[in-house]
Design a protein around this nucleic acid. Structure first.
Lengths: 245, 245
DNA sequence: CATTATTTTTAGGGCACGCTAAAACTTAGG
DNA sequence: CCTAAGTTTTAGCGTGCCCTAAAAATAATG
């Protein structure tokens, strides 16, 4: 039943993980670390061991270990006890992973009828398996969107992102008019609620009232007037809109 | 920057691999082993260590090791030196993985314009990351196809497959008419050639001539008359067609 | 049926990633 | 500026999956 077992070459020294079949290939955990560091670092440029650990749900000790490996591959710069900063190539990998994630989220909602509160987990897994080629096919099918369903900007294939900071709804003054631009994709309950009150990217909002002592806000969204807590409001990013009477 | 590192629970004893977020979850390598065993076992029901190793491109020793683990999880039955046979639950996992693979292949060709010779590798990675939910969305979008682009039957969600055996083109008599039903998805060059001569699933073929001494066959496919070697012909499965004059 | 060939398994490692407990370093606060 | 608290790292391990080399079992053959 086969004497040809040894004909097939077996070029496989290290443990080549699922990952994406592209250029600079790294394992799924590595992509996750780089993504986490990328968006924890934000403006300051560096991320702390503890924060990365919390974000990824692993122990700080594990983060130290992984970080050392990543530094050896020049994916980041690391000085003991000093936090990490992505290198140029680390940034590239992070952004490509983020691009994959966001395009996949867009595709799932747009073309496969996934509700926006459930795309995150699926994308979280697919982003490590989908090739860049597939992702570009999806992007094309979608008409090269620039933001995902939650309003997060999609990095371009060559690694540029819109890094504008936005106001949160909590920072608006009473009477101010704004356009909803973005909300985190990680909290399904929040997303479901927002969809219910029609507060989705692109929607126009106006703050009608602010209860005293950091109380809830009364909004106007379309024809409804939902009252929302500051906690929620802080998570909803908006863009002021010219208040033409 | 955060004292809340420990608030997040960390329920993660073993190494939970990417895999699909569903019931009976297993790692990607495990899915690959089960798939390989499933289709090597074929009629006889059992697969040999060597064959599995060759199929997966790993050493026989690795197969022995993995097989022991799988037997412990009751995914297969194993007796030293005697080969393996899938258990009922192993078969279920294998078929679910195969269903995922084939639906993904179908989706990629149908909806994303992937050429049929390049879907295999992509599907090979995605099948481990896509949830059953996603796969069912795809299946629905496709109108619940029963065969993938290469003609392989798609198992149903509850684990049934069309296990009919087919003739190969090499077994047809001169003059016989048949319908192309299936070809392996693993050889891109073969697939490209077949597409070129229009010999794709559903196509009608007729054997016009057989050269002596196991020589090449002259076919009629549509309006063309390609001449193909027996090696190729043996890989193309067909279904005889009533020869109504 | 004994010897050789083949297949399969064991023995002994390696690497990536994860964990806990304890040590080392930094930062904050009195 | 010194101590306590918080953060980060080290030490030591476990698991999954893979490898090579050598031993053991099975199969093939003169």
């Amino acid at each position: 039943m086969s004497a040809d077992a040894k004909r097939i070459p077996r070029p496989r020294p290290g443990n080549t993980q699922p990952s994406s079949a592209d250029r600079q290939r790294v394992s799924a955990p590595v992509e996750d670390y780089l993504k986490a560091i990328y968006d924890l670092a934000g403006r300051s440029g560096t991320a702390s061991t503890n924060d990365v650990a919390a974000r990824l749900g692993v122990s700080p000790a594990s983060v130290t270990g992984m970080i050392r490996r990543l530094a050896e591959q020049d994916l980041l710069e690391y000085e003991r006890y000093r936090g990490v900063r992505l290198s140029e190539s680390g940034r590239v990998v992070a952004l490509r992973t983020i691009r994959r994630h966001r395009i996949i989220e867009s595709y799932l909602t747009e073309k496969l009828g996934y509700p926006w509160d459930r795309v995150h987990d699926e994308a979280e897994r697919l982003e490590h398996a989908a090739s860049d080629e597939l992702v570009e096919h999806m992007a094309t099918a979608l008409g090269n969107p620039t933001a995902d369903p939650h309003g997060a900007p999609i990095p371009t294939a060559d690694g540029h992102v819109d890094e504008r900071r936005h106001l949160s709804l909590a920072e608006l003054d009473v009477g101010q008019r704004a356009r909803m631009v973005r909300v985190s994709d990680k909290n399904p309950r929040l997303l479901r609620y927002l969809a219910e009150i029609d507060l989705t990217p692109g929607a126009e909002v106006r703050v009608l009232e602010r209860a005293p002592f950091d109380g809830p806000l009364t909004l106007r969204v379309g024809a409804t007037e939902p009252v929302v807590g500051l906690g929620l409001a802080a998570q909803v990013l908006v863009e002021a809109v010219a208040d033409e009477e």
